[in-house]
Simulated assay, not measured.
Amino acid sequence: MLFALICKDKPGALQIRLDTRPAHLAFLDELNAGQKLAFAGPFLDAEGKPDGSLVVVEAADKAEAQAIAARDPYAGAGLFDSVEVRAWNWVVNKPSA
């Protein structure tokens, strides 16, 4: 089942994001290698700067998706103000369709 990890950065935390980005990308590469990552990317503010993340993962249940979210280096660095984990159904333009 797919889960969307909807992550909002803390205000003024851009430097934490920039400093932690290499570890975050390595984490996403690890998820991708394990066929757990559907897609990911940052949300952008009005100035075009990242201020959150959308990561869609394959997980058996919400608990597994929450565990994946907790392992993200961004979460460990304290970047996020909030993380919402929601089951998601990919209907249109799904690559496997």
Rank of each mutant, 00 (worst) to 15 (best):
T20L: 05
A33H: 09
K36E: 07
E64D: 14
L25Y: 05
W88F: 15
P50T: 07
L2W: 08
L28N: 06
V83G: 04
A60M: 10
F27Y: 15
Q15P: 01
P11F: 09
A59T: 06
A60N: 11
P73W: 06
P22V: 13
E58P: 00
W90A: 09
N89T: 11
R71C: 13
N89I: 10
D51K: 02
V57P: 03
R71N: 14
R71I: 05
N93G: 00
M1E: 07
F39I: 14
A13T: 10
L44V: 07
A63H: 14
G76Q: 13
P73I: 08
E84S: 11
W90N: 01
E47P: 01
L18T: 12
R21M: 12
L37R: 06
R71F: 04
D19A: 15
A13I: 02
G52P: 01
Y74M: 10
G78Q: 05
V55Y: 07
L44C: 01
P73L: 06
D51W: 01
F3I: 04
P73V: 10
P50W: 08
L18Y: 03
A65G: 10
V83Q: 04
A38H: 13
A26G: 00
V83W: 05
T20F: 02
G12D: 04
A40W: 08
D45C: 02
A87Y: 00
